[in-house]
Design a protein around this nucleic acid. Sequence first.
DNA 1: CGTTGTTTTGACTTTATTCAAGCATGGTGG
DNA 2: CCACCATGCTTGAATAAAGTCAAAACAACG
Lengths: 248, 248
Amino acid sequence: MAPLSQQMQQLSETCSHCSLRYLCLPDHLDSHDLEKLERLVDSGAPVLAETELFAQGEGLTHIYAVRNGSAKTVRIDEEGFEQILGFYYPGDILGFDGFADQHHHCSAVALETSHFCRIPVDQLDALVDELPSLRQRLVRLMSQVLSEDGRMMLTLGRKDSEGRISSLLLGLSRRRALRGMPASSVPLNMKRADLANFLSMRLETVSRVLTRLQRAGVIKVSQNRVDILDRDALRERSSRGAWVADQS
Amino acid sequence: MAPLSQQMQQLSETCSHCSLRYLCLPDHLDSHDLEKLERLVDSGAPVLAETELFAQGEGLTHIYAVRNGSAKTVRIDEEGFEQILGFYYPGDILGFDGFADQHHHCSAVALETSHFCRIPVDQLDALVDELPSLRQRLVRLMSQVLSEDGRMMLTLGRKDSEGRISSLLLGLSRRRALRGMPASSVPLNMKRADLANFLSMRLETVSRVLTRLQRAGVIKVSQNRVDILDRDALRERSSRGAWVADQS
DNA sequence: CGTTGTTTTGACTTTATTCAAGCATGGTGG
DNA sequence: CCACCATGCTTGAATAAAGTCAAAACAACG
């Protein structure tokens, strides 16, 4: 249950009044341009947990911004393997990967009952041609994702199980801080299996690492929430777990 | 030693006559738009092996297209760990990750003596505002990279050493096919340590897997070249090595 | 309460890493 | 022209980490 005040601010209908505008598409747009963007945005009905927002392979008609709640993106590759690509929180954009060929390359699924802003791609496209500031903003956001992906590949490739969990927790915490929410109490809206899939570990290992970290007094685990008790120790573990590559 | 004909075609000065135009930025541009793009492109001096094209942290002034030769991108993260993010071949674009904040988030290094097309970002930016077709092309290319990254995360996270090597070899082979080069003979321009770093394995493991695959008659390894003898077997191993995630 | 789904814990096995040594290759200078 | 060194690659034996399978604990929900 989110506090009422938070629900109120997040449900504000217009971008200009949205508490997330500095994270989301509107950032760096002047009020005139913002108004035009605003007219495209449609805030639809609530999306229930486990419901698909869009499906892999589907044509790209809209991109989405998380208004409140959370989501994950899942990709099933040619060989039939399922991989969670990311978790998304208020202000994050879903659907960028579809610009390549106008089709979604992953599915998006709500982790809990959530609200999303829907933006029709064709209209966005037209507006982008009109507003250089919006184009720049879009390119920056996409580029940011690229940069994030690089970081993730590093985590997956080079850290042991403890390093991965620690990195993930710090990452989620940081993203909460960006949104002005308490950063030391991180809700885990997803199942352990989701975490395991995302971090490429088995869920048993996720569980073991979480209890190990708890026993070490670094975090406190309770159901769907992790409290960070010793941030420095967590940071230390997130990098200690990484190994140094051979020199080329 | 590349055959002369290949050198000739790749060194063609204009995009319109470049054999790589359908892979590279020019694709989908009409001749009028292409001409304008062409004027921005500067084909500089050859870049020697191990030389940096641009450095992480540096301001984004140009993006680069590989004209001939090859390159790798390397990122050093906050914790000082070095990770190779990708290998690049003729027609590939380097520098997209810099659009986020006008600074490069990785370094680019030539793997061998190579030529690159340099495109000044400020001029490109202006041209993008002018030409919707170019904007669309750029967005598509970036989106493609995003999609590729997703695939890579899957490989890193979910495949064992044999699966990773097999996937890499198939990937390199596919990219050669796209460029009209013999796909069954894949040159490994990079060192084993680079491969190991990229795939997040130790170089000893890379070595062991290559010999294992060779003993199984799937490939033939010679110095800096791998011949694919049994593509189906390689494909089989590239997916066999992957494990199935727990259901969420 | 009992049923179902999720998470934790335990014992055992597999896999890749580590450390250490040996083998090729290619370039340099005697 | 060949011995020698540097660099990069391969191989081997021991170790540590994470995966597997199986079962028990815990929560949530009707």
